[in-house]
């Protein structure tokens, strides 16, 4: 996010790429940890301005994919392109990774506003303290997530949902334009989820692409233009209603041990940006079937 996104006072310091231009692409992307394979031959094309949910069971490679896109992890094989650039450092300056809440040390002696200021560190001189203007940027970002009044509080005193929003505020002041969020809805109540989703839409209007990982099928459907069902490979990719189907879910979450069913990948209406209802077909019945009863809990740390 540019400063302008955080303050919304002055507009578009960075020229927004046209909606629909390629934003994140991977070609034959594989990631191995030792002899364990986390992602296998993943080829994706995500366009600017899409809100994409990444769904799959624990260990499906959701976090791994986000981290590779963010430039945190190097791919073992294949290529990754983010907004036209392939360098790992460049990727991390274009896409901001928002880690899972569980990974931070919440007892750390730091105030909420100082956590948000961390997002500015890369672009501010280490020889000077943060200026009053920097503080205002951080406060404005907190305001956008509805936490301005908690700015001076030690971060551990906030609720889980509030901590998640602080992470989002920090991402807003970072320099990446696009957001990659790892399980942003875990432990968050319904009103807070609505606040976050509104913010996602607002950011998209400003030219941002947003990808979030979730294991909650309702979340995967409700907020996103497009869902990608993952289990080391891409199981299905398309409109949420077409992807979250009983058949696909059985293939992704089914108890068949390590190897997901190989072969044809369900590809449903890649034109996820359109609201054109004609594209969805017989899948509708099954998707309504599959939605509610399945909720997969637990946390995915890969």
């Amino acid at each position: 996010m540019t400063d302008s996104l955080a303050t919304s006072s002055h507009h578009a310091r960075r020229a927004n790429p046209p909606q629909g231009s390629p934003c994140f692409s991977t070609q034959g992307l594989s990631v191995h940890f030792g002899d364990r394979s986390a992602l296998d031959d993943v080829t994706l094309d995500i366009r600017t301005g899409e809100i994409v949910s990444l769904v799959g069971p624990n260990g499906a490679g959701k976090s791994t994919l986000l981290r590779v896109l963010a430039g945190v992890l190097p791919p073992s094989h294949g290529t990754v392109t983010v907004a036209g650039t392939t360098g790992r450092r460049d990727r991390s300056s274009r896409a901001t990774y928002v880690p899972q809440r569980g990974e931070a040390l919440w007892t750390f002696p730091i105030a909420t506003v100082d956590v948000v200021l961390m997002g500015l560190a890369r672009r501010r001189s280490r020889f000077r303290p943060y200026s009053a203007a920097d503080r205002d940027i951080a406060l404005a970002a907190l305001d956008r997530v509805g936490l301005r009044d908690r700015a001076g509080v030690q971060i551990g005193r906030l609720s889980g949902g509030q901590q998640q929003r602080v992470f989002l505020a920090r991402a807003l002041v970072q320099d990446g334009q696009h957001l990659l969020l790892d399980e942003p809805f875990v432990g968050i109540d319904a009103p807070t989820q609505a606040v976050l989703l509104d913010l996602f839409r607002e950011l998209r209007a400003g030219g941002a692409t947003i990808i979030y990982a979730t294991h909650d099928l309702e979340q995967a459907k409700g907020a996103a233009d497009r869902a990608i069902l993952l289990r080391r490979r891409v199981i299905a990719d398309g409109r949420p209603g077409d992807v979250i189907t009983l058949a696909n879910l059985q293939r992704a979450f089914g108890s068949a041990p390590s190897d997901p069913p190989h072969g044809e990948r369900v590809h449903v209406s890649p034109g996820a940006m359109s609201n054109d209802e004609t594209a969805s077909s017989s899948h509708d019945v099954t998707s309504r079937h599959a939605g509610a009863p399945l909720a997969i809990t637990g946390r995915d740390r890969q």
Binding site: A70, P99, F108, I110
Partner: peptide, 21 residues
Amino acid sequence: WLLRRELVALAFDRTFAEASG
């Protein structure tokens, strides 16, 4: 003092530190 921001980021949230470059 010069590394204060990096040290804080590493201690508070290592994943963020790595992701922010």
